[in-house]
């Protein structure tokens, strides 16, 4: 039975879908991420208005296609008369900067500790793993809220907090991979050849776990973007008047009950599209770069 079962598994329709996705790039997610990146970079050129200053007489204007809207403010204005479109454009910059730097920070910290823990073993391993367990005992978001509440709101504080909160996921996965790598022939050869532990970790272990770290990072991007939006929404994230999407949603609550829908719908759509693209891209990378991580 073994061979037919193997064949059955490989030739299932799902495998075919996977194959197609392996060949073709995930066009739509890449396009969305590309556009958002461009928008974030050229925010100054693209935004029609100043995102942080509004005209109070032009408060709560609806998008242009609705009665009372104008092409001056394509997607309407908020409670301070600020242009929603411009705020969305600059909000993209905040989401991208926080998302990427936090993921890289968490990834660097987690990968470093994961390699140390996995390769050195012993008490280093014990300490790192107990720490990871404790960190994971708290819901990451609660922990981030707690940290944000004590250090106070600022964009770079949020980056550090999210990095400090989410490094554990990397540490666990990377440690597991290092444990397996340690038994491999080339690592043993390097030990026999007299390489120092530091050299082995840098030249033999790190290049072999970097793929997993990238895959994890792409999967974490969506998580981190949502976390930033949540913190901003709760008022412990990016401080006003900066146009973070979570903050826009929080402000939008004021107009929600009277039906100023554009203040709630547009920033949320932005978050959703960005996170959706990041997740799709992460799934694709996972299959492409690291088949072992399919279970994640």
């Amino acid at each position: 039975m073994s061979i037919p079962a193997e064949i059955a598994r490989r030739s299932s329709p799902l495998a075919a879908v996977r194959k197609v996705r392996m060949r073709d790039y995930p066009v739509i997610p890449l396009a969305i991420l590309g556009i958002v990146t461009l928008v974030a970079i050229f925010a100054n050129q693209l935004a029609p208005h100043n995102p942080e200053v509004g005209i109070l007489t032009a408060r709560f204007k609806p998008p242009f296609w609705q009665h009372g809207g104008s092409t001056e403010y394509l997607l309407g204005t908020d409670q301070l008369g600020r242009d929603v479109l411009s705020r969305l454009i600059f909000g993209a910059r905040i989401s991208m900067v926080v998302g990427f730097t936090a993921v890289i920070f968490a990834g660097a910290l987690g990968t470093f500790l994961g390699i140390l823990s996995g390769y050195l073993g012993g008490w280093v391993d014990q300490v790192v793993m107990r720490l990871t367990d404790t960190w994971l005992a708290l819901p990451a978001l609660t922990f981030a809220i707690f940290l944000a509440a004590i250090v106070g709101p600022s964009m770079w504080n949020i980056v550090i907090i999210l990095g400090v909160t989410y490094w554990t996921r990397y540490a666990r996965v990377i440690r597991g991979e290092v444990l397996a790598l340690k038994e491999r022939e080339f690592v043993r050869l390097a030990i026999v050849a007299g390489c120092s532990k530091w050299t082995i970790m840098r030249h033999h272990i790190l290049p072999n776990v970097i793929n997993s770290a990238i895959v994890l990072g792409s999967l974490m991007l969506g998580v981190v973007i949502i976390a930033e939006a949540t913190l901003s929404f709760l008022g412990v994230g990016v401080p006003p008047p900066q146009p973070a999407w979570g903050l826009m949603l929080s402000d939008g609550k004021q107009g929600l009950m009277v039906g100023y829908w554009w203040l709630t719908v547009f920033p949320g759509l932005g978050i959703m599209l960005l996170v959706l693209s990041a997740n799709l891209l992460g799934d694709w990378l996972r299959v492409k770069l690291d088949p072992q991580l399919r279970q994640l």
Partner: peptide, 8 residues
């Protein structure tokens, strides 16, 4: 489900 923040 994974991409839409619950508060939104």
């Amino acid at each position: 489900g994974l991409s839409m923040p619950s508060f939104w």
